[in-house]
Design a protein around this nucleic acid. Sequence first.
DNA 1: AACTAATCGAGACGGTACGTCAGGTCTTTTT
DNA 2: AAAAAGACCTGACGTACCGTCTCGATTAGTT
Lengths: 227, 227, 227, 227
Amino acid sequence: MSTPARRTGRPRSAEADRAILGATRAALVELGWGKLTMGDVAARAGVAKTTLYRRWAGKNELVVDAVAAVFDEHLEAADHGSLRADIEDVVVRFATLLERPETKTALMAVVSEATHDEALGARVRSAIVDRQKRLVLVGRERAQLRGELPPEEDPAAAARNADLIFDVIAGSVVHRLLVSAEPVDREWARSFATVLLHGLAAASSGTGTAPAPEPAREHRQKPAGSV
Amino acid sequence: MSTPARRTGRPRSAEADRAILGATRAALVELGWGKLTMGDVAARAGVAKTTLYRRWAGKNELVVDAVAAVFDEHLEAADHGSLRADIEDVVVRFATLLERPETKTALMAVVSEATHDEALGARVRSAIVDRQKRLVLVGRERAQLRGELPPEEDPAAAARNADLIFDVIAGSVVHRLLVSAEPVDREWARSFATVLLHGLAAASSGTGTAPAPEPAREHRQKPAGSV
Amino acid sequence: MSTPARRTGRPRSAEADRAILGATRAALVELGWGKLTMGDVAARAGVAKTTLYRRWAGKNELVVDAVAAVFDEHLEAADHGSLRADIEDVVVRFATLLERPETKTALMAVVSEATHDEALGARVRSAIVDRQKRLVLVGRERAQLRGELPPEEDPAAAARNADLIFDVIAGSVVHRLLVSAEPVDREWARSFATVLLHGLAAASSGTGTAPAPEPAREHRQKPAGSV
Amino acid sequence: MSTPARRTGRPRSAEADRAILGATRAALVELGWGKLTMGDVAARAGVAKTTLYRRWAGKNELVVDAVAAVFDEHLEAADHGSLRADIEDVVVRFATLLERPETKTALMAVVSEATHDEALGARVRSAIVDRQKRLVLVGRERAQLRGELPPEEDPAAAARNADLIFDVIAGSVVHRLLVSAEPVDREWARSFATVLLHGLAAASSGTGTAPAPEPAREHRQKPAGSV
DNA sequence: AACTAATCGAGACGGTACGTCAGGTCTTTTT
DNA sequence: AAAAAGACCTGACGTACCGTCTCGATTAGTT
């Protein structure tokens, strides 16, 4: 039933697929996105260039698949007993993953290409991004079961909310690591979790207004320019 | 005294610099990062390729400078009377900027390259990223003057905090737009501001612990769409 | 046994070879050596530059081969019934060949380059020069059969002699045409043949001494150093 | 009358001229014609490129002048007591000159360029070639004084004859050295002189016919391939 | 002694060609 | 039919020289 109508001729080597993806990751580590070439990957995999192009449309597609596998392997959401712990954990996990040399460049490069190639964008989202979003959903559900967050009522709102949270988490970590080029350590993760936790609570409680921020009585004598 | 030791030989044409950066931006709009070539930029600027290479080491460096000018022009922090309004405004401004065709790809591409070229990374930060960080500092100060946020006590903590906030804002917007490929509209800006506002309050007050999250009793009366 | 180990992969296009050499000759005619560029040749031949470089190391090598073909086509030694007629004929033929626009510059340019590129020199000799030397050998043999010249006894001396004669003929014609820039017409050919014919007779007869040159009666009263 | 209307302004440095020509020769030795660049010559001479172009139109003109000086220095016709000795001597002298690395390439290169630049051709002839022709004239006159050659009667024929002899001598030596790439040693010079001497005698005596070449009795049974 | 005009060094400039490299396609033989 | 091998076209790369063009700084000769 699943076997897709066995065709005539020599079947594609499954071995080759593995070798190619492996070679791609290895090349990414050694050379980075920019210097990685199809010819080089083919040579590393002990495969002809033709074989590569028979399976992937180009460099972008190949790299997306090669990197997707790495993401799949390393993103699991363990239950740490509290929402804060779960957030901190997922932040650190994601950061660790992004610090691997093969993902570091590849992700940004592929995202960059995706800005003018809608098909590639879709592939990136389905193969890499969306599977991470699952973590947010799982984490929220756990928090709700624990009573740390209120249950959802409107499914659409819930989805929007999850998207927002996901963009905040993933975006912040990526920006910290790849743009600011600063480490995501335990301390940063804790600070970030603090911000997020309070934001989350407010968003979930529907508070559309600013919190009464600790009366903040008389700081106004503070001179400008203090930054 | 300031004149930087007037050297011998024909001085570099300032005109050329302007023409090249302009041509680079034009080419970015028309072709995007990937299709932009040094030869094309030179031709558009009415300049020899060598003149380009005499001033910039390569495509990356050139694009960083060209894009930096755009950022400089469009990032100003107007005072909107409240921290929430200021946040929403900066988010929308930044998103608008990122949606321009010349910045869209260019930024990510350059960040991607910067992951294996430290000098380029430094250039990106000093020419583009750090100047945006100013907005965060200005906004915070205003909020403090308004009494919306408490004054800083530990300068180091203040700096760390500003960095965090900056990564959260910039990262979230970038991720939303370029990775998730969803629009940053007024509504999203509002939701994001809500999250950030509460997180900010908590972070500023030094609350390292989870908020007593509004005992989560009765959120259910809240209508949907609240994020 | 002769088949040179038929290899795998796409074989080189013989068509391309022909097109390239043809294009090179055409370009030489139109532009001359100096203005001929690899890119232009490739374009004329409807071939990629890389294909050119895959087969020839550079302009020099390419031109040698292209010119060699012309020489091959146009140098044949017809039997004109006498040594004098044969010499005159070969001189005129060679001159005609050298006056063709594609050979004119090309030959000297390549020789010039060969003075500091031994491999190129060897190529020039094997592809162009040595095949002309054949004409000398054939002509001498015919003359010997006719009884115009004595047979050779020492093979080594014979070879040396042929080399000498060849250098004299080729060198004189080249110098007349390309250095002195005077035409090689029937009259010049006749004068040259006269000189060579007598010299040949003396050299062949082994006469190492000057001929008794028409007693040369009494010019010696003329004072020396008059110039 | 000779002073060319002394103009105002700073006069050209005679020192520079010397330095440039010297540097050109040095560069020719080290790099050969092809790799010699104007910029390099200027640098070696400690002079700006502008200074070079103010005095010479280009590489060709510069090299012609640089090489001409070398020829001038080294070509003198000493009287060796006999026509044969004079011929051998001039052949060896010329060969020695042509074997110098700076003349070797330069001469052919310049001749090659001259084939499509008439002005350059004229310059080459007046600066280099024609001054060598003098040697032929001097040698012939001496030989006539010695009684080795008959005096000239028709001045036009005499000039034609001198041109022929000159092309034969210079051409043969150049061809031997630069095309055949064989040495011009004493032995070769002797063989060449033998050929020329007899040819000269015949040409001078107006003998337009072949010599009776030593009856050449019965060599015809000689098998082919003897060369 | 001041003026004038050409030269000098330095080096940037617009060009042209170089030879190389990667992307992707096509053709051949082998499996 | 798919695979390995490798030639092919396209197009950009970054470099090297070309010959020209500013510059500011020297030099003579002229006023």
